[in-house]
């Protein structure tokens, strides 16, 4: 058997010269970007990974102590749960809402659609400080919302000091990012050939059937990138939360970034790096599950 394998190796056809040249050229052209990625992303990540196994100053190896401390820490568990809950609620809601907006904006036609697009994108460009001010005007104890509730005979709500704070965070996130995701969906919708819709219309398909059979399958590539960008943007909501409620907000809006910030003030770098690695592993696990589901679906497709 081994002899056959050896013979097979000797018999393998050599790579064409032009193909090798192409690969070398590609490697050379990619090298500067890869170097930048390595210096600014990979090396720091490696350092974070190293520090998760050392003390705060990075001098002494401590094994898995940091991981044990983090996993047993109530604040980490709360922050992780809140973050997971926030992401789990926000991302699907945002994707659905922005898709609906995209479909509606497209339906209004090219001219009016442009105006609506600009309008929905405006929240994204509003500075964080302005949003914070808006929060305070709306949701303070004597703010606009409580004034309106009082006028309606409803007792005031402590928005920032109760579980309502979490939902305000979600509403803010949706309001700020739906315009951006809408643009991504619109770009995806524009890639679907109009001829498919015409053919479906000739066959007597209704709007829902067209959406299910043509639009949704056509948007699958866009779904991935939109979901990823939405996930990245979900971490930025910490800025508003921190500026409004400070380092120790109501527990319902206590996120991982709050914890990392506060731990850093106490020089708990070992814990921060261990927690960051755990978050990365969690994201990788979710991504792997998603990939596995996709492969399973592809295998089962007729």
């Amino acid at each position: 058997m081994i002899r056959h394998i050896r013979e097979r190796r000797w018999c393998r056809r050599p790579m064409p010269f032009c193909k090798r040249q192409n690969r070398r050229a590609a490697a050379l052209l990619l090298a500067p970007s890869l170097a930048g990625v390595a210096v600014f992303y990979l090396l720091p990540f490696a350092e974070v990974l190293r520090r998760s196994f050392t003390d705060a100053m990075g001098r002494r190896f401590v094994g898995l102590t940091n991981y044990q401390t983090v996993l047993n820490n109530d604040a980490f568990r709360l922050a992780a749960a809140n973050t997971a809950k926030f992401v789990g609620i926000c991302i699907p809601l945002l994707l659905a809402l922005s898709l609906i907006l995209a479909l509606l904006v497209r339906a209004t036609g090219p001219q009016r659609g442009k105006g609506f697009r600009s309008l929905f994108l405006l929240p994204m460009v509003i500075p964080v400080a302005s949003i914070v001010l808006l929060w305070k005007v709306l949701f303070a104890d004597s703010g606009l919302m409580n004034t309106a509730l009082g006028a309606a005979g409803i007792p005031p709500i402590d928005f920032m000091g109760s579980d309502a704070a979490f939902w305000i965070l979600i509403v803010t996130y949706l309001w700020k990012n739906s315009g951006y995701d809408m643009i991504l969906w619109i770009a995806g919708l524009d890639r679907i050939p109009a001829a498919q819709y015409e053919a479906a219309a000739v066959d007597g398909a209704n709007a829902w059937q067209m959406f299910r059979a043509i639009t949704w399958p056509g948007l699958r590539p866009t779904l991935g990138i939109t979901a990823l960008l939405s996930l990245i943007n979900s971490f930025k909501v910490f800025r508003e939360a921190y500026l409004v409620a400070g380092a120790y907000p109501h527990p319902s809006m206590y996120l991982l970034q709050h914890l990392f910030n506060n731990w850093f003030l106490n020089l708990e770098l070992g814990r921060i790096t261990a927690a960051a690695i755990l978050v990365v592993l969690a994201l990788l696990a979710c991504g792997s599950i998603g990939l596995a589901v996709r492969r399973f679906q592809r295998r089962n497709q007729p």
């Binding site: 820490n73 109530d74 604040a75 709360l78 120790y248 527990p251 914890l259 506060n262 731990w263 106490n266």
Partner: peptide, 8 residues
């Protein structure tokens, strides 16, 4: 008010 700080 102190719960988060104590938990950390």
């Amino acid at each position: 008010t102190a719960v988060l700080w104590l938990a950390e």
